[in-house]
């Protein structure tokens, strides 16, 4: 993909469809894990200069819990899970069956490992679905997490892209549930070269199916 071009409507559509497939796999995995119905809805796919991405997706100074992992293999990318703190505490208390007290801002080590496990479940099922469909090797790193201003976390994530990519594809997914407290966002970022690889392999798929 040329660095200066936009996504065509068709490219955007195939990326949305592909993401919805991955999101479906993630939703069923997390629903099973927490025993509540959760849907992951793909909101948008955009192609922006790296420094512009942060401003478009989050309220910059709100304190949130961000889980971050890198994707390697045939493509280079990142997956980012952002939970409002209220949701992150709700999830760890639900899974640990323990309430460590209201009004706190820090997680215990055990709770952090629960959140990382949630991240593994969501990202692992998403990537497996993608990699099975595309026939590409996608390897995920273990996740790291921080609880701080949304923009500060995103800033560090974007810097990992900024030295090698002018623009990046952002896939924006939200968590939806009847359970009011379950809210969150899930972002996938791929640099231009990786987006190219994904789109090429999708094209191959469509042609083979004809």
């Amino acid at each position: 993909m040329d660095q200066n071009t936009m996504l065509t409507d068709n490219e955007k559509k195939v990326l949305l469809d592909l993401s919805q497939r991955g999101a479906g796999a993630s939703a069923s995995a997390i629903s099973k894990m927490i025993n509540k119905h959760v849907k992951l809805d793909v909101q948008d796919v955009s192609y922006l200069e790296v420094e512009k991405i942060g401003g478009t997706i989050l309220d910059s100074e709100t304190v949130v819990t961000t889980l971050y992992l890198r994707i390697t293999g045939d493509v280079a990318g990142s997956m980012v899970l952002v939970f409002p703190n209220e949701c992150a505490f709700f999830l760890v208390e639900l899974l640990s069956q323990k309430n460590e007290g209201k009004g706190r801002t820090k997680f215990t080590e055990y709770e952090k490992s629960i959140l990382k496990e949630i991240s593994n479940i969501v990202s692992g099922s998403f990537l497996k679905s993608l990699s099975d469909y595309l026939g590409l090797s996608l390897v995920e790193s273990i996740p790291d997490m921080t609880t701080d201003m949304a923009q500060a976390a995103m800033d560090s994530i974007l810097i990992d892209f900024a030295h090698s990519a002018h623009k990046a594809i952002t896939i924006n997914i939200v968590f939806i549930s009847n359970e009011e407290k379950i809210k969150g966002s899930f972002f996938l970022l791929f640099d231009s070269a990786s987006a190219d690889i994904i789109l090429k392999s999708l094209k191959g798929k469509v042609n083979n199916a004809k």
Binding site: Y68, L69, R70, T72, S141, I142, D144, M145, T146, D148, A152, A153, D155, S156, I157, D160
Partner: peptide, 11 residues
């Protein structure tokens, strides 16, 4: 912000 990924995993 992510010392584990950057310093230990060196991703």
């Amino acid at each position: 912000m992510f010392p584990f990924l950057h310093e230990e995993v060196k991703i």
